[in-house]
Design a protein around this nucleic acid. Structure first.
Lengths: 159, 159
DNA sequence: CTTGTATTGTTAGACATCAAACAATTTGAC
DNA sequence: GTCAAATTGTTTGATGTCTAACAATACAAG
């Protein structure tokens, strides 16, 4: 019988939580977010923001709606995010060629320069993350994570 | 050479993101959150809120600060969360025995009843999550996730 | 006991995110 | 070509989270 409730100040009972993969995922993500913030806090960039910058860099000229879908953000959220990045001089909204409704997003030279620094920091952060994992374990982890969300299959056009 | 940028509407380039364990974790968590919301949306309960309820159930009488530490929330956030749950009649703030500053948190009968339903739904959700994983893979995933976040450092106070 | 320090719950202010509504524009049906 | 339907970016309002400050209470040193 290990069932002992309110044992001590620190010895809290987490019930069924630890057995849930979703919970472990959540814990891992919280820890990652903290380390990421500590590593990049100086630049005021969150994991999500980093992703946005990388995507714009890799797809110059993409529209806000496309960015929203790619980054799993709402269109309205992208407005704030790009406002933010534009205010910092990292991203530019250009009129799209074919569509007068859309903006074509591109990184400014400052944005490109910052991204370079960020990538180095993220690389270190990533290394720290998988510090206690062998290369094989790291690959396995990524593979299992990808198996979890079937959303991945949307990457190939589904229509 | 698979390097082809802005190939089509759907064929976006995600740069280095897919190779990052942190990114895959983030994607997985987004997918999980969506499925969780779909499974429990009817009850207006998020993964975090579910965790809070489970922890209170497993540690009746715990203080708000203890809950904050356990659930990785700020003390001020716990105020809102408990306000919410108390408004719904699921949790009760009782005066703590030894400490007139603290509240002792307990689930109401309604809270206990709801938790029972929630657990069933979460079980189904969890099963869906690991649907494409063998039992061995599931165990491996949880083990690797635990290896990622050295929570042991958080467990021991550093001062 | 008195006094300084720490802890607890709370409020106020900031920020990120989402959903709903909107005008401008594009697309598709006829 | 005309007009309804869909898409795009935006604004507004709601929610959840954090940090910084605060008063009340507990604790520790003398």
């Amino acid at each position: 019988m290990t069932k002992k409730k309110t044992s001590a100040d620190k010895g809290l009972d987490f019930g069924i939580l630890p057995s849930l993969a979703g919970y472990q995922l959540r814990l891992a993500q919280i820890a990652i977010f903290r380390d990421f913030a500590a590593a990049l806090g100086e630049f005021d960039v969150t994991p999500g923001l980093f992703g946005v910058i990388v995507i714009i860099d890799a797809n110059p000229g993409l529209k806000q709606s496309e960015l929203a879908r790619a980054a799993h953000l709402d269109r309205s959220t992208v407005v704030s995010v790009i406002d933010n990045l534009e205010r910092r001089g990292l991203v530019e909204r250009r009129p799209a060629e074919n569509d007068r409704r859309s903006n074509a997003l591109v990184l400014t030279p400052d944005g490109v320069a910052l991204l370079k620094k960020l990538k180095r920091r993220v690389g270190e952060h990533e290394k720290r993350l998988v510090e206690h994992l062998s290369e094989e374990e790291r690959v396995t982890l990524v593979r299992l994570l990808q198996k979890i969300f079937p959303e991945q299959r949307l990457t190939q056009s589904h229509t």
